[in-house]
Design a protein around this nucleic acid. Structure first.
Lengths: 200, 200
DNA sequence: GCCAAGTTTAACCAAATGGTTAAACCATTG
DNA sequence: CAATGGTTTAACCATTTGGTTAAACTTGGC
């Protein structure tokens, strides 16, 4: 099935993702999305009634990617640090494929006009990590720090470079390829951090 | 000098900061800024010729805050880890006063239409930290990791919670006050992280 | 008091933008 | 083949938006 075999609805959604993620909600024009999809602007309103509705479709899809499940990890018979390491590896590789995702999600949840969307956030994994940290803490197996701080640190160290990419490229004079190498390297780097931080 | 004693230009700039930081460039209306400043919309164009020009003024001011200097720190006669600790403390307290600053800056530098602004970034401190890390590394005083990774981690762990605030409040059922407590606590938390990561 | 310069305002304008409508097109089915 | 229902388009509409203009207002110097 080639690119041209997509249904109109799929073409619209794909185009909407491209434009919304690149330009943000306010910066996106329905005409731009129509052009990107190679169709008439009125067709957008035929399939999705309004810009808001179309955006919500895109957001609902993307939010599930940004907040992955990773349930299986906690059933594995390995150290807590190794479980976190697996989550980090999966997450950075996910963001390497979706570099604009973090800024898109953060903009939406910080937009006063989109505050309803906050209820939709599937924060289960974040809570699960904090909870498991707490359990390990009780067992005296990890350093005594606030589990919430730990979760924030993990998420931030994974997502921040993708948010600040233009700054990093500018500060360190790197290019796209160098950035991707840096992110691959970062996986092992963060696994080390985690072991250091967790060791009581 | 009360709030009402501000000159018109100062009132405009203050209002523009409020609106641009809250709503972003595309989400901001010149009329909203005029209302916030308590003046006529045409006055905006009298003092600053266009929305772009006004935005640039705000950006130039804010970018200097987001990228602080902190030069003095490196002349102090203390451990490298303590120098980084001081920078972290200053930076988190800065962001506590300017919680919308990180998203504002990241949006601007990620905006394809504002790519020129990237040249303006005063990334001196970032480079200085990386360089000093490298020097310490030569002396065998810190763990052997990539200095760039270290800088990214520090920045990310400081700035990310302010970017993801709505997510954190949602995930952990916290309120504004709890968040600020968490950020104050985070200063000591990050100082600990740094010591752990740096110790060879 | 009055002139000149800077300041502020109301009214206005053209372009952009989200959305609508009615007609044309096309594929399926009786 | 023609009727039907879903699909696509061009043209159109109302509102919003950044920006302009010309007149009114204020202030400082003579």
């Amino acid at each position: 099935m080639s690119e041209l075999d997509l249904t109109t609805e799929e073409k619209i959604l794909k185009a909407a993702e491209t434009i919304f993620l690149r330009d943000g909600y306010d910066g996106s024009r329905m005409q731009d999305i129509a052009n990107e999809a190679g169709i008439n602007k009125a067709l957008l309103h035929y399939y999705f009634r309004s810009k808001d509705k179309l955006f919500e479709h895109v957001f609902d899809k993307k939010i599930g990617i940004f907040f992955p499940k990773a349930d299986g990890v906690f059933d594995l018979d390995i150290d807590f640090a190794d479980k976190i390491g697996l989550i980090i590896e999966g997450y950075i590789n996910l963001l390497r494929e979706n570099p604009y995702l973090p800024l898109f999600v953060l903009n939406t949840v910080n937009n006063p006009e989109k505050s309803d969307f906050i209820k939709k956030l599937p924060v289960g994994l974040m809570q699960k990590i904090a909870l498991n940290y707490f359990v390990e803490l009780q067992k005296g197996k990890v350093r005594s720090i606030n589990p919430m701080q730990f979760v924030i640190s993990i998420m931030g160290m994974c997502a921040f470079p993708f948010l600040a990419r233009p700054i990093l490229l500018s500060a360190f004079g790197a290019d796209k390829e160098a950035f991707d190498v840096l992110m691959k390297q970062r996986i092992e780097e963060l696994k080390l951090y985690v072991k250091l931080i967790l060791t009581p």
